Computed example of a mutant assay.
Amino acid sequence: MSAGQHNVGAGAAVTLMCLTSGATDVLSYLTLGHIFTSSMTGVMALLIIALAVGKRPTAIRAGISIASYLVGGALAAMLRRPKHAPDSARRSVRRLLIVEALLLAVYCVIAASAPHPVTGALRDILIVLSAMTMGIQSVAARQTHEQGITTVVLNTTMTSIVVALTERGPGRRSKPLSAHFGLKIIAIAGYVTGAAVVAAALVNHWFAADLVPLAATCVALTLYLRRSEG
């Protein structure tokens, strides 16, 4: 497999990770008690608001989400291969996506067997699993070397897009937009697509909504498995 094909595969995998994040944010907010498990900026704001107005249950769920995300990130840091190991970045992403997919599969099994709406301890377990997967994915995305693209928070990506476009205004001299700029646009489109698909699925009461993050992660993993064979 050529270097160009490798780059396309990595870009597609990053876009699928963004799709997973968009799907997860909508899924967690609408089914797990109005809590985000991907956007830690959002859930931190929810935690502060809940503490300010005395909404203890919301504050607890937000705290569980943040703590689980951090645990997932720590677990991913321990699982990734040493930087000096051969092909460490690609192998790390593959390993982390496998763990993420396994946790998402467990999430789907529990969600399928749980009463709806999910409440109590089962909801807390689902928050833990969902947030852990996003913590793992955030580390996996850093291993792809797609600089300027984060899959769980899009602020940096959106800012870099605005800056790049502004620098190409009238009277300014700059290099032509690169393929990497296009990937940033596609990554945001992936997030929006994941969010829209899950929102539509939940409106129609489809169990398929729970499967969207797992499906996107499995496709991303398949791309990395194919890259390792090339």
Rank of each mutant, 00 (worst) to 15 (best):
I64T: 08
G73T: 07
R227Q: 13
F36P: 00
V197K: 03
V26T: 15
G169K: 00
P117M: 04
A67E: 02
I49F: 07
N7F: 12
P176N: 05
R123T: 10
M1N: 11
S92T: 07
A12I: 07
V153R: 00
T151L: 04
P86Y: 03
A220V: 01
P213H: 05
A74Q: 10
H145S: 13
A52W: 11
I110F: 11
A199L: 13
L221R: 03
L70Y: 10
N7E: 13
I136M: 14
L32H: 02
T151I: 02
L46N: 08
A105T: 12
A76S: 10
S28F: 06
L122G: 04
L214S: 11
I66T: 01
A76W: 06
I110Y: 10
F181L: 01
S28P: 06
M1T: 10
R168L: 07
E167F: 04
A52L: 13
H116N: 09
F36W: 09
A195G: 14
F36I: 05
R226C: 09
I188S: 06
T24M: 14
I161H: 09
V197M: 14
L165P: 01
S113L: 14
L102V: 14
S174E: 11
T20I: 06
L122N: 06
A50F: 08
G22R: 01
A13P: 10
R168G: 14
F36G: 00
L27P: 00
V128G: 03
G182Q: 05
T133K: 04
L104R: 02
A141M: 13
I110A: 06
V163R: 08
L104M: 08
A195V: 08
H84A: 14
I66R: 00
R94G: 08
M44Q: 09
R227M: 15
I64E: 02
A77N: 12
Q137D: 07
Y191I: 05
T133V: 08
L126F: 00
A141Y: 01
A121H: 11
P82D: 08
T156Y: 09
V139W: 10
T144G: 08
W206M: 13
G171Y: 01
W206F: 14
A111G: 04
M17G: 05
I125C: 15
P117N: 07
A141R: 00
D124M: 10
Q147R: 10
M78H: 13
A112T: 03
N155K: 07
P82V: 05
Y224T: 06
S65D: 00
Y69S: 04
S38Y: 02
G4Q: 11
S92Q: 09
R226S: 11
R80L: 13
T31D: 01
G33W: 04
V71C: 14
R56W: 11
L70P: 03
T37N: 12
M132Q: 12
S174C: 04
G72A: 09
Q147F: 12
S228N: 04
A77Y: 06
L221A: 08
S138C: 09
L19H: 02
T156F: 10
P86W: 03
M132P: 01
A45R: 02
A62R: 01
T217V: 15
L47M: 15
I60N: 03
R173K: 12
S92G: 13
A215S: 15
R61G: 07
Y69F: 15
L129C: 12
